[in-house]
Computed example of a mutant assay.
Amino acid sequence: MLNPDVTIENCQPEQFDLYLNDLAYLLLACVHAGASISFIDPFDIDDAQKFWQENVRPGVVAGTRNVLVAKVRGAVAGSVQLDCDTPPNQKHRAEVAKLLVHPDYRRQGLAKKLMRSLEDLAQRRKRCLITLDTRTGDKAEPLYGALGYVTVGSIPGFARDPFSETLDPTTIMYKQL
Rank of each mutant, 00 (worst) to 15 (best):
M1Q: 08
N3S: 13
D5C: 10
T7Q: 14
E9A: 15
N10D: 15
C11N: 12
Q12K: 14
Q15N: 13
L18K: 14
L18V: 11
N21R: 10
L26G: 07
L27V: 03
L27H: 05
L28N: 09
L28V: 01
L28Q: 06
A29F: 02
C30M: 00
V31F: 00
V31Q: 01
S36A: 15
I37G: 03
I37V: 15
I37R: 03
F39C: 05
F39K: 05
I40H: 09
P42Q: 07
F43G: 01
I45R: 12
D47T: 06
D47S: 14
D47V: 05
F51E: 08
W52F: 15
Q53G: 06
P58L: 06
A62S: 15
T64F: 11
T64S: 15
R65M: 13
R65S: 12
N66V: 10
L68H: 14
V69H: 08
A70F: 13
V72W: 00
R73K: 14
A75F: 04
A77M: 04
G78Y: 00
L82W: 06
L82S: 11
C84R: 12
P87D: 08
P88Q: 03
R93N: 09
A94Y: 08
V96N: 07
A97F: 12
A97D: 14
A97M: 15
K98C: 05
K98A: 09
K98R: 14
L99R: 00
L100P: 01
H102N: 02
H102C: 01
P103A: 00
P103S: 00
D104K: 00
Y105V: 07
R107C: 02
R107A: 00
Q108A: 03
L110E: 04
L110W: 02
L114D: 07
L114Q: 11
S117K: 12
E119W: 08
D120L: 14
Q123W: 11
K126L: 11
K126T: 10
R127S: 07
T131R: 09
T134D: 01
T136A: 09
G137T: 04
D138M: 02
P142A: 02
P142T: 02
L143I: 09
L143S: 04
Y144L: 07
G145H: 11
A146R: 04
G148D: 05
Y149Q: 04
T151I: 09
V152R: 01
P156F: 05
G157N: 13
A159H: 04
R160E: 04
P162V: 01
F163I: 01
E165Q: 12
E165A: 12
D168R: 11
T171I: 06
M173Y: 07
Y174M: 07
